[in-house]
Amino acid sequence: MASDAAVTGMGGVIDLEEKTAVGTTNKVPAMPMIFVNALAQRFVCEDTTYGYSSRAVFQQEAALGKPTYMIFGEANANEPGSPWTADQLTADVTAGKLSQAATLTELADKIGLPAANLEAAVTRWNEDVAKGTDEAWKRRTGLKPIEGPYYAHRNRLMNLGATGGLRINQDGQVLDTLGWPIRGLYAAGLNAGGWLGPFYPGSGVAIAGIVQQGRRAAQTLIRKRV
């Protein structure tokens, strides 16, 4: 920017749920759990890519002005995709990072959610997974019941990077504020902006920019020597 480089695609970030990293890979299923908003209602398919689930978390928290939570049972923490062991569950409860309760009513009271709605959400989930499906959100992994003791993890988004960056042309050359290439300056991947769209879709899409744009920039550099 000090060289008069233009920027584009600013105003967005790449988020990830910091504790669970849910949806980062389809090789590991999401643990049995549900996301609920401040009304104790599910609002997203929890095993979708983090680019979408994180955006849904952000939107719900922005709209209602309150946190969202992951709700699960003690047995669920032993399933694939869980970031917790039995010892870590105890440690996080002690540290105040997890809320624990014997009943959903008690859990709802601890985290300030409507108890009736939370019970309804978990009941609907349990009824669906007993039939081997998630009729509400079409989730495909972690379809097991949520039973007490119950836990609530407050979702916290971690910033992985920005969607904006330097404006480039198809050859990877950085453009100035008038749209002309800046001699000897190239960008690719997340250093470049404007090619990801309105938000990051997840699943390693940034790697495509690194490979394709980086290759074009190298070819241009060899061809033009500038």
Rank of each mutant, 00 (worst) to 15 (best):
L160M: 13
A116D: 13
S54R: 02
I34S: 03
Y69L: 06
K19F: 08
W125N: 00
L185T: 03
F43S: 00
E18L: 11
V122R: 05
V211D: 11
A188D: 06
A130Q: 13
I222Y: 14
R42E: 13
V226I: 09
T24E: 08
R139C: 05
G197M: 03
Q59G: 00
V13A: 12
A108V: 06
G148P: 15
G193K: 02
P67C: 11
Y69V: 02
L64T: 12
E147M: 10
A136T: 13
I210K: 03
V44A: 11
A152W: 02
P201Y: 05
C45I: 10
L157K: 08
P67L: 11
P181H: 08
A217I: 06
G189V: 09
R42L: 01
A2I: 09
G73A: 07
A136S: 09
G9A: 08
T103I: 04
N78Q: 15
R139T: 08
R167L: 11
A121P: 12
D92H: 11
P201G: 07
K144L: 15
R124Y: 10
L178W: 05
F43M: 02
E18T: 10
K144P: 02
R42N: 09
R223S: 15
Q219T: 13
N76K: 09
R55Y: 07
A120Q: 12
R183V: 04
F35G: 04
W195T: 00
D171Y: 14
P80L: 14
N78K: 15
A116H: 08
K19Y: 06
A192K: 03
R154Q: 15
I210E: 08
R225S: 12
Y52I: 07
K97G: 04
L98E: 06
T90R: 13
T49D: 14
A62T: 15
W180I: 06
A38G: 06
R156P: 01
N76E: 14
L221F: 09
K138L: 11
G11Y: 09
E147H: 07
A6Q: 12
Q213R: 05
G184F: 14
A187C: 09
A38H: 04
A101M: 05
L107S: 01
Q213C: 01
G65C: 03
D109S: 13
